[in-house]
Amino acid sequence: MAYDRFSTITSPAVPLPIENVDTDQIIPARFLKAVERKGFGDNLFRDWRYNADGSPKTDFVLNNPKYSGKILVGGKNFGSGSSREHAAWAIYDYGFRVVVSSFFADIFKGNALNNGLLPVVVEPAFLEKIFSTIEVNPAATFTVNLQEQTFTNDTTGESVRFEINPYKKHCLQNGLDDIDFLVEMKDEIAAFEAR
């Protein structure tokens, strides 16, 4: 699918200091009835974000005007649970381009990478510092440089390197996906089948 080419992002970050944020929280199953991929951002974190009557829960971070930005920071084991790609779509559609955590669930990580959403893994101690920086100053910015594979806390100047495999990096930087690659390989695949 087409998504924006990823370059460098400098932005404030939205903190979600909860562990095991599962895909049912990111996008509850009852919102998976669509047959097209649009509008999922409206229901991102639906049950944490809204009361049953549809009114916003004022204590939830997305409803707090102090916090905004293209970077979502979550506790460890972010994206656990179901394989629903709708979770990555919802986060992207809401406007995030980066999710930072000390640990991601595998399927979520793959889905994010396939949709132009960059998962950045940092050490637990660094993650705690990100949370405390935002707590002191919600407008504090962070810089994600995909080319250099660095994540910088602009307030403290601390910068860490994150891992991403070179193929996926190339895809993100160029807005490419795996399907183009695989379709080009059809003869090789047919030859494999004939073995």
């Binding site: 699918m1 991929r37 179901s82 394989s83 629903r84 790609e85 709708h86 990555a88 399927i107 793959g110 889905n111 396939n114 949709n115 996906d177 795996d178 399907i179 695989l182």
Partner: peptide, 10 residues
């Protein structure tokens, strides 16, 4: 194993 929708398309 489980896969996402992009992978279903693949």
């Amino acid at each position: 194993f489980g896969i996402g929708t992009s992978e279903v398309e693949m």
